[in-house]
Simulated assay, not measured.
Amino acid sequence: MKKLITVVFLFLGISVFAQERGAARAEISQDEMATLRAKRLVMQLDLNTDQEEKLKKLFAKRIEANKELKEEIQKNKDADRAEKAEMRKERMEMNEEQKAELREILTEEQYIKWEQLQEKRRKGRKAPMRERKN
């Protein structure tokens, strides 16, 4: 009986924590999200206030573009491979544009450090499902 009660409380605790994380993201506005991303880079790269403002604008624009792209993907759920490849290509172009804009905002040292942080972040992620080996 004690084991059953322990298991029930364990599952309840896990479900509560899992729901809280997603709920917090839904409450953050796009402007707040852009500000948070900019602040994080300010701390990591030691940016000045002018750079911070430019980053806020860049991230706000990127969040809006991602929202539009997400809506387009939802609309084209049943798209064939060619359409999906086109959307993937469009996304990659957006990423390249963002890198170019970042390069204009950041100094050379800051940009190199940003690239290193991105690489570290990529390595920290789990491999996609199709590449995982059990």
Rank of each mutant, 00 (worst) to 15 (best):
T107R: 04
A79K: 00
E90D: 13
E104S: 13
K84H: 06
R121Q: 09
E104I: 05
R91P: 00
Y111F: 15
E119T: 14
E109V: 01
A85G: 01
M87Q: 11
E83C: 02
Q110S: 09
K75T: 10
Q118P: 00
L117S: 02
Y111C: 02
R103V: 03
K113L: 05
Q118K: 15
M87Y: 14
R121L: 07
D78L: 10
A85L: 07
I105K: 07
E97Q: 15
M87N: 04
I105R: 11
Q118M: 14
R91K: 13
K113N: 03
A79I: 04
I112Q: 13
E96M: 12
D78I: 03
I112L: 08
R122L: 05
K84N: 08
R122Q: 11
E93Y: 03
Q116I: 05
L117Q: 00
M92P: 03
I73A: 10
E101T: 15
N95E: 07
Q116S: 09
M87A: 10
Y111I: 00
R88E: 11
I112H: 12
K113A: 00
E108A: 07
R88M: 09
I105F: 13
R103F: 03
Q74C: 10
N95T: 06
E115C: 13
A79G: 04
K89L: 08
K77D: 00
R88P: 02
Q110I: 05
L106F: 12
K113W: 01
K77M: 06
Q110G: 06
Y111A: 03
K99T: 01
K75I: 03
W114Q: 11
M94F: 13
K120C: 05
I112E: 13
R91H: 07
E109H: 02
R91S: 06
A100L: 02
E96K: 15
K77S: 04
Q110H: 01
M92C: 08
A82C: 00
K77W: 11
L106N: 04
M87G: 01
W114L: 15
E96Y: 14
Y111P: 02
E104D: 05
E86V: 05
E93T: 04
M92A: 07
I73M: 10
L102M: 12
R103L: 05
Y111M: 12
K89M: 09
E96V: 15
E109W: 00
E115T: 05
E93G: 09
R81P: 00
K77C: 05
R81Y: 06
D80P: 01
E97K: 03
N95F: 15
T107S: 11
A100W: 09
K99R: 08
L102H: 11
D80M: 04
K120T: 06
R91M: 12
E119F: 15
L117E: 02
K75Y: 06
L106E: 08
I73T: 00
L102C: 09
Q74S: 14
R81W: 02
R121N: 08
D78S: 03
N95W: 14
R121E: 12
K84A: 09
K120Q: 14
E86R: 14
L106Q: 07
K99V: 01
E119V: 12
A79E: 01
M94I: 07
R91W: 08
A79R: 09
E86F: 14
K120H: 12
R121M: 13
E93A: 06
N95K: 14
E109G: 00
I105A: 12
K89C: 06
A85S: 04
W114G: 00
N95H: 14
M94Q: 11
